[in-house]
């Protein structure tokens, strides 16, 4: 990329760094109380933990184009997308720690993050964020707004029925929906190559008469370009798009995963092409000031430190609150 000083590139860099710093802070916190013998129920962060490190470009390259009024639905691996969409970092950290100040007061945890102020939600069920994203897109369209919705899914979700139902419906309705496949090569332990009939899921878009764009390289700039076109198209009322991004999962499916299914040396090869240091090098090569990047890194780290301090300093929820918010109160009208 020849243009050097574009603010969105710094924004993307800072948010990738923030996401990575957030997950780097989760790692030791998650293992507190889980050693010497791993027990998922123990420690300040119980339950499954799916980290998104390596996949940050997918989040920032798309969300750089989004406004608060646009909707994002994410997956069981949601932190990078949540951060890039602007979810409140303090309350997100508190939710992951199961605290009363969390986004939902500890009812949801890391797979069920909701922040209505920026229209972000995620679901722990594969491909099932797509329907709600389609609905949000249709709500915007029916109201005459130019808001769009983005549904993040993994490559494994493209083999789910919900994917095909929503792809067809979105096309029939010309919905302002962008489906983003983060292809990290694995559904838990099963490789994409061993369980998917075609090598590129972007090709499936043709079956639903919508554009399908494949992006290689796990490159924020390339993703930014492609997503910009798809989002602008959706805002113009020209309908949905599918974007497939080749990315990499630098950790296991969940923390504690022994990853015996990976070929020898794969993780080292992936870490050698970690997108964040590569992007930093490119920005420097393009003439961005190292001090400016350092300032991004400092701001990101400070935000993460503050969020974890907020989470750890927050009280656990009153057990009685488990019984509230099952139903919403009726609103007049």
């Amino acid at each position: 990329m020849s243009i050097t000083n574009q603010p969105h590139r710094l924004w993307m860099y800072e948010n990738m760094v923030k996401s990575r710093a957030f997950e780097d802070a989760i790692k030791p916190a998650y293992f507190e109380g889980k050693t010497p013998r791993f027990n998922m129920a123990k420690g300040p962060i119980p339950g499954e933990m799916h980290l998104s490190d390596g996949q940050e470009p997918c989040a920032v390259g798309v969300c750089a184009h989004l406004r608060a009024g646009d909707t994002v639905t994410a997956t069981h691996r949601p932190h990078h997308a949540a951060i890039a969409k602007g979810v409140d970092l303090d309350r997100m950290a508190a939710e992951i720690f199961g605290r009363e100040t969390g986004l939902s007061g500890g009812r949801g945890g890391h797979m069920h993050l909701f922040d209505a102020s920026v229209n972000f939600a995620c679901s722990g069920i594969i491909a099932q964020g797509m329907g709600p994203a389609l609905g949000a897109a249709m709500a915007a369209k029916l109201r005459g707004s130019d808001a769009v919705a983005v549904a993040y899914i993994g490559e494994g979700a493209a083999n789910q029925g919900a994917f095909h139902e929503v792809m067809n419906l979105a096309s029939v309705w010309r919905a302002p929906l962008i489906v983003v496949i983060e292809d990290n090569g694995y559904g838990v332990s099963v490789s994409k190559a061993s369980c998917t009939a075609l090598s590129r899921n972007a090709d499936r878009a043709a079956a639903y008469a919508m554009p399908g764009i494949h992006v290689a390289g796990n490159d924020p700039d390339a993703i930014y370009e492609v997503a910009g076109d798809a989002i602008a198209r959706a805002r113009r009322g020209e309908g949905p798009s599918l974007i497939e991004i080749e990315t990499s999962r630098l950790e296991g499916h969940f923390m504690g995963d022994q990853e015996g299914y990976r070929p020898d040396g794969e993780k080292d090869r992936l870490k050698a092409i970690d997108p964040i240091p590569r992007y930093r090098e490119r920005l420097l090569a393009d003439g961005l000031d190292a001090a400016e990047l350092a300032a991004c890194e400092n701001r990101a780290q400070q935000a993460v430190d503050a969020a974890f301090a907020f989470a750890r300093g927050s009280a656990l929820p009153d057990p009685a609150s488990a019984f509230t918010s099952v139903f919403a109160e009726r609103t007049p009208g």
Binding site: G102, L103, S104, G105, R107, G108, H112, F114, D115, A116, A121, T324, S325, V326, F327, A328
Partner: peptide
Amino acid sequence: AYFSGGQV
């Protein structure tokens, strides 16, 4: 409603 803590 529940997972959003009543936000949605």
